[in-house]
Amino acid sequence: MPQQVRGVIARSKGAPVEIATITIPDPGPGEVVVDIAACGVCHTDLTYRDGGINDEFPFLLGHEASGVVESIGEGVESVAVGDFVVLNWRAVCGQCRACKRGRPQYCFDTFNAAQKMTLEDGTELTPALGIGAFADKTLVHAGQCTKVDPSADPAVVGLLGCGVMAGLGAAVNTGNVGRGDSVAVIGCGGVGDAAIMGARLAGASKIIAIDRDEKKLQWAKDLGATHIVNGSDVDVVEAVQELTGGFGADVVIDAVGRPETWKQAFYARDLAGTVVLVGVPTPDMTLEMPLIDFFSRGGSLKSSWYGDCLPERDFPMLVDLYQQGRLPLEKFVSERIKIDEVEQAFHTMHAGEVLRSVVVL
């Protein structure tokens, strides 16, 4: 039978979020109901609330989540009732041209649950990134569930569902950071710091953290940065070149996503270096640069969407590294909060006071 549970919704653009009773249908073919254990407060949720994604209100917010599979629909074989899973927002189809070329991380036809969760009056909800996990339970496609070690801390490993994976993957998967490489990361919020952690994991010899906030720079240093640069005090490009023998970094990751930071990344890399854009620009942003600079510098200019991850490959591996003490994911959890504290967590996040607030259910 359908269930009624608590959920955090955004009813209209910019309005404070609220707790509402939502209806979860029984899982249909290929669907799963997950009992949510924890869910991180991501900037994307705030962007949904403020109408920056689309206007398909009301939204059921939350997506960086972990939990336990409560029930499964017809045909589900990838997970079973009782499995501890991390949720993801790119359930690959296996049939599109990207999947058939052996590049499922670029899947062009990812899955979400076919049924809709609703309010008590039947109003359909739009789940954030197809998940909607600021709730006691949620309905997702089975492919959005990745089974991981059940002994792992739910509040920690759930963050792999979005921001941490995006940043870490930007370094390891998209940027192909290797042993001995020099890496610069512009923007030291959650995604940027995850990129720093990824660069460290990959064996980079020099990791330069760049931000305008001293608190964030200290967080970056704690997570593996070997050098810090305050962009409000110095020329970023000159600072990176000075720290890399005058050449520039092998890989520069822009975790901000603005024209000015992307230009800094472009000119702060070595001649054959790589730029990775993982910060998300707004639709109105444009870039104007001399075309000859693109031609004469070579290298690679890449965008990283979800860290080019493949959840079924990457999540279990990263959870294992965390469990072994080789990947300190717990440092991203700044505070653990209740479900009715999400609106305050948005203010805390916007003020730059936390890496991640995590709702524990």
Rank of each mutant, 00 (worst) to 15 (best):
K215V: 12
Q324T: 06
Q3D: 10
T348R: 15
T286V: 15
E288H: 11
V278M: 04
I36E: 12
A133D: 05
G325M: 08
K215Y: 12
S182G: 03
G67E: 11
Q344E: 14
G51E: 03
G102D: 07
F84L: 05
R326P: 00
K216V: 08
L159F: 05
G14I: 06
I337H: 03
G132F: 03
E353F: 05
L168M: 12
E353I: 02
G167F: 01
I22R: 10
I228M: 13
C188M: 14
V86P: 01
G130R: 07
E330P: 03
F59G: 02
R356N: 02
L60E: 07
A91D: 10
Q144C: 06
R326W: 02
V17G: 10
L327K: 02
G198N: 00
V185N: 02
M349K: 03
A225Q: 08
G30I: 08
L201I: 00
Q324Y: 06
Q264L: 11
F315M: 07
G248M: 10
D55F: 07
K331D: 00
E353L: 10
D340E: 04
A38V: 13
T123A: 11
E238Q: 14
G40V: 03
L223Y: 03
S357R: 14
R6E: 11
G192H: 09
E31A: 10
F295D: 01
D250Q: 14
M349Y: 07
G67P: 06
P58Q: 09
V164T: 00
A220K: 09
L125Q: 05
V81I: 15
I337A: 07
A38D: 03
M165T: 08
A20W: 07
T47D: 10
V34Y: 10
P150L: 13
P58E: 08
V342R: 06
V354H: 12
A91M: 12
I36G: 05
G122Q: 06
T123Y: 11
E353N: 15
F266D: 00
F346R: 09
S300M: 13
K216L: 10
L277G: 01
L168T: 00
A209G: 09
E74D: 13
G73I: 12
S66M: 06
Q144V: 02
K216W: 06
Q264M: 13
F294H: 11
V32F: 04
T244C: 10
G143N: 04
D26H: 09
V252G: 08
V85F: 09
D270I: 10
V234F: 12
H347T: 14
L201Q: 00
G175L: 14
G52I: 01
V278S: 02
V177C: 00
F57W: 09
Q4I: 10
G299Q: 14
